[in-house]
Every structure is written in C-alpha cells, then in structure tokens.
Amino acid sequence: MIINMARFDRYFTHFRASATRIETLPAYDVPEERENFAVYLSGAPLPAKRHAEWSANVRKAVADGKYMGRIHVIHDRALGPYLQYEVYWYYDVAAAAGEDIRFIFREDVPDVDFRDTWIFDDETVVDLGYSAEGQLKFVNENDHPDRLEQARAAWEELYARSFSLAELHAKIRNSGIPVPRLAHDGKPRDDLRPKRPGQRVPNPRSGDHRYQGGDPAIRR
C-alpha cells in the first residue's frame, strides 16, 4: 500500500526495536537539501547544528535500547559529490548519535537483490520509489511475506560484507577510494577549487552560510 508521509514519519518514532535502511543511489535529489548541498560544495564551514532533528531522534532511540542502522551502496568504487556531502553533513553527525552507518561496494554484492528500503522491527518493509534522477516519487509499504523475506535477506547479506563509516574515513585518508570533486551534473568544478592554497572559495549561491535549520523532511 502506498502510504503518505505522515504515516511514514510515524515509523521513525514508533518502531519498537530496529529501523534499518538500504540506500542504493549515488545521489538523491531532495528540494529541501539543495541549498545545503550548495553550501557543502562551496567549501564553507559545515554548520555545527546540521542534521540535529534526525540525530536527536537517533540518540533517543539508542538510549531506549533500539537499533538504527543503514548501509549505503557505493557505485564504481568512488565517492561522488553527493555521497561526500552525505558523509560529512549527515552521516558523521548521525553516527556520533549512535546510528550504525555502513557502506558496501556495488561490485561486492552482484548476487543480492536489494532496493531502497526501510525495514522496521524486522517485520515491516517500506520500499522507496525514486526517479532516475533520485527524486522520491512514492513510499510503499509492502506487506507480502515474500518481500519481507527478500528484504531481510538483502539486509543480512549486505551487512555481512559491509564496512563501517570509520573504515570509509580511513579509506578516504589513505586514498583507498577516489573522491572526485564534481558538481551534481557530473561536470568538473574548477570554480570550487582554491586558486592557491588557503584561498577561500565563495559560495556560488550566496554569501550567507548560516544554517537555516530543519532536516530534509523525506529522504532519511
């Protein structure tokens, strides 16, 4: 059944034991995020209070003994600009709050049938439908027992072969993973590269880097 956002949101505060997410796309296009993404690409300092609402919910859930985890599938063994933004803007903050954030290379799971999914309490499967450009189009709660088994198996298989956020940071530091500086449209961003060491790069969108507050409403 296709569910509305109010019902979808309820799961994040009402799950009893676990909430697990599989993310399969190299980039998500969320209108509420565009300004923040531009700030990230500009090289401006990251706002300290970013991702606060989500992380507060994670902290509360973990304090209550619940588990929240996610695995992001990385394509072409490279960390594209959007995924870099996710790591530094969201994942670092949520991981500090207690979310178990993990990664896997697409090439390492050619045999697993996975989708963009949330599983709540190991019993409720919520599939997320996206356009090719990464826009969320609909949210479907699929209560077919076979889909539950498939989604559970996907989580277990991906998890078994995944690596942690800390390991991803180690790969980045050790140049074990390419981190191309590219724009959302895939073109090289010469304008974002400092012209000489230490030179500040202006925000292409505006001169104001103040965080506006609030988390993206839908793509979690």
């Binding site: 059944m1 296709i2 399969t24 796309l25 989708r115 963009d116 999914t117 599939d127 997320l128 439908g129 996206y130 356009s131 090719a132 189009k137 609909f138 479907n140 699929n142 077919h144």
Partner: peptide
C-alpha cells in the same frame, strides 16, 4: 512507468487489443 531505476516498479503496458495492463501493488 514509475521511473524505477531501483525499487518498486508500477508500470503501464498496452496490449495488442488496445487495452492496458497495469503492474502495481496488490490491494
């Protein structure tokens, strides 16, 4: 279709009889 690069995949098909076949979520 729904543009399902990944995930669920509602789709509309046309038959040779000029009718539609719909792939969707069971209700």
């Amino acid at each position: 279709g729904s543009g399902c690069a990944t995930g669920p995949c509602p789709t509309v098909y046309l038959t040779e009889n000029d009718t539609f076949v719909i792939q969707g979520f069971a209700v």
